[in-house]
């Protein structure tokens, strides 16, 4: 039997609130993901609330991952997440446009 080798990546779920309250704890999880030096998938399907602090953190994270030569992809970003990034004028930079 041969096992199909899937490309390695790491996934980070953003939870329901991508906001200032959870930013510090999310940063720790993102740091763990960074340490793996793998492409990252951000799962944003549950995000009900996103704010400046949360989106700024994600932006900085994406830049860092890209600096490491990896890629960040989105998985099912929620409407709320997309709308918030639009209102803050960050959807392009966050690749959510």
């Amino acid at each position: 039997m041969t096992l199909k080798k899937t490309p390695k990546k790491t996934t980070v779920s953003l939870g329901t609130a991508l906001d200032i309250v959870n930013a510090s704890s999310l940063k720790v999880r993102l740091e763990n993901a960074l340490a793996k030096n793998l492409p990252v998938t951000l799962v944003g399907d549950k995000v009900e609330r996103a704010d400046t602090a949360g989106l700024q953190l994600i932006y900085s994270f994406i830049k860092k991952v890209e600096q490491q030569g990896c890629e960040v992809t989105w998985q099912k970003p929620s409407d709320n997440l997309i709308q918030s990034s639009e209102v803050l004028g960050m959807s392009e930079q966050l690749s959510l446009a």
Binding site: I20, A23, L30, L34, Q56, S60
Partner: peptide, 14 residues
């Protein structure tokens, strides 16, 4: 916006 390692999550740099 500072680099990820230096970013203080609660500060605003935008």
């Amino acid at each position: 916006v500072p680099c990820f390692d230096e970013l203080k999550a609660e500060s605003c740099h935008i």
